[in-house]
């Protein structure tokens, strides 16, 4: 029995990944962590019917409880084999409008909570190996005026992923980092409210890449920032 933990599965890339991955039968148990319970339940309803889904009500802006939650998942299913850190947060603002609360919330949800989840899940993956996938962003690779907290937090996530790829290699734990470009998600609407979502990449496009990495293939491309975006027309 293999277990996958996913954050951000109530919508967007997280939901598409949870649904698509469940159909591969790669994992038997799924723990979906989030605070939008209704959204998570909708996701669970669309996942394969012969898998176990455990919905955990948790707010990633308060990471203190995460170690306990990971222990609970490991106790319930006996193993943790995969972690998908997909949840994200943004509150775009210029330097002069960016409050401490804004940058703190952004870093907590985009970096600190994913880090705590990686640390705690890796404790259970140490003996048998496992896979971790973090969602960064192309915003973390190039300057975007007005996105200082979001873009810098994603740059940090790229670095965290690369560092932990080296540190966890000994245990057979692969760390993947994906940087999607413009993708039709709720988060993107906050960054580009006037954009027509039908003209950009869809969550399923990114989910397909995630399933490839987390499934049988993709084993040799850990440790690098994998950019996922539509070709420039």
């Amino acid at each position: 029995m293999r277990t996958c933990v996913i954050t951000g599965a109530s919508s967007g890339i997280g939901r598409a990944s949870a649904i698509m991955l469940s159909q591969t039968r790669e994992y038997d148990n799924y723990a979906l962590i989030g605070r939008n319970i209704k959204g998570l339940e909708e996701t669970a309803q669309n996942m394969a019917s012969d898998i176990n889904v455990y919905i955990i009500n948790a707010d990633l802006s308060t990471p203190e409880n995460l170690p306990h939650i990971v222990d609970e998942i490991a106790e319930k299913y006996g193993t943790i084999d995969c972690l998908l850190n997909i949840a994200g947060y943004t509150e775009p603002a210029s330097i002069f409008s960016t409050t401490y609360e804004n940058i703190q919330a952004t870093y907590t949800i985009n970096c600190f909570s994913p880090f705590i989840l990686m640390r705690e899940c890796a404790k259970y993956m140490k003996k048998k190996g496992g896979k971790i996938l973090n969602i960064a962003s192309t915003a973390g690779m190039s300057p975007r005026p007005g996105w200082v907290s979001y873009a810098s937090s994603k740059a940090a996530m790229i670095s965290i992923s690369q560092t932990l790829t080296e540190e966890l290699a000994e245990y057979g734990i692969k760390v993947y980092c994906i940087s999607p470009g413009r993708c039709a998600t709720n988060l993107r609407k906050k960054l580009a409210p006037d954009e027509d979502p039908s003209t950009i990449m869809q969550p399923e496009d990114v989910a397909r890449i995630i399933c490839n990495l987390i499934g049988e293939g993709g084993n040799c491309i850990d440790g690098q920032n994998i950019v996922v975006r539509q070709k420039i027309k």
Binding site: G129, E166, A169, E170, Y171, G172
Partner: peptide
């Protein structure tokens, strides 16, 4: 030694 012999063993 760690990098070449331990980390790459898996």
């Amino acid at each position: 030694i760690y990098k070449e012999y331990i980390a790459r063993r898996r």
